[in-house]
């Protein structure tokens, strides 16, 4: 048998390789759910595994480099019935290692808010407050961490509240709501070296002033 070797031009070689690369990428993305080139793909995958079936859109996107990882990215995703905070970062397997904390936005209340505490060895403990408040003008927010202790001597509960105002750069006004993602080092941990017992959001809206407990809480710990 004579030895025949097909010769390809540069263009043909490049196109063939690009086709192979694309096929591999699609296989990894669609079948194995790894190798995502876009952070929103990783977020969407976790949304599905959290039961957010409805289509959602990213209302806010924030780069938080060095929050817990070099390339941390936060998303506030809103659907017709859900509002979720997503977090992802770039890994050797593409955008991955993602978390989503979905909440019900269907109840029609004025405030939907959640808080996620994040810890990682070698990093200070962070609190991520997120959510939306009905109202567009003159809405200012304060995110508080609360420590309640029983004071034996005084026979009363001792409540200590620490918090910071949510800056304008952490808010977004759109479609009748003020959305926010606010990250701060845990003030209770900083001051008392103890964990907070609860969280609250203080809302100033025009003449109104009220505070609400944040019931939607989650923890994430990276090794």
């Amino acid at each position: 048998m004579r030895n025949v070797k097909r010769l390809y031009t540069r263009r043909a070689r490049a196109l063939r390789r690009a086709a192979v690369a694309l096929a591999l990428l699609l296989f990894c993305n669609v079948v194995l759910h790894i190798g995502y080139l876009l952070p929103i793909q990783a977020i969407r995958l976790v949304e599905e595994s959290e039961g957010v079936y409805e289509p959602t859109r990213a209302v806010m996107k924030q780069w938080r480099p060095n929050m817990m990882h070099l390339t941390d990215r936060l998303y506030l995703n809103e659907g017709e019935h859900s509002l979720s905070l997503g977090c992802t970062h770039l890994t050797p397997l593409g955008w991955d290692d993602s978390f989503v904390w979905p909440g019900d936005a269907f109840d029609g209340g004025d405030v939907q808010a959640g808080v996620v505490d994040m810890s990682r060895k070698g990093h200070e403990r962070l609190l991520v407050f997120y959510g939306r408040v009905r109202g567009t003008e003159d809405v200012t927010l304060t995110a508080n961490a609360v420590r309640r202790d029983w004071d034996d001597a005084a026979q009363t509960e001792r409540i200590r509240v620490y918090g910071h105002g949510v800056g304008e750069e952490d808010c977004l006004v759109r479609g009748g709501y003020t959305y926010f993602i606010f990250v701060e080092p845990d003030p209770v941990m900083e001051k008392l070296q103890q964990f907070p017992t609860s969280y609250q959001l203080v809302v100033n809206r025009g003449e109104e002033h009220f505070s609400c407990d944040i019931e939607r809480t989650a923890s994430v710990l990276w090794g």
């Binding site: 004579r2 030895n3 025949v4 070797k5 097909r6 010769l7 031009t9 263009r11």
Partner: peptide, 15 residues
């Protein structure tokens, strides 16, 4: 012509 795609090339080793 090879680049333009009107011809294709292959190498063949003669006996």
């Amino acid at each position: 012509m090879e680049k333009a795609g009107t011809v294709a090339a292959y190498e063949q080793t003669a006996p």
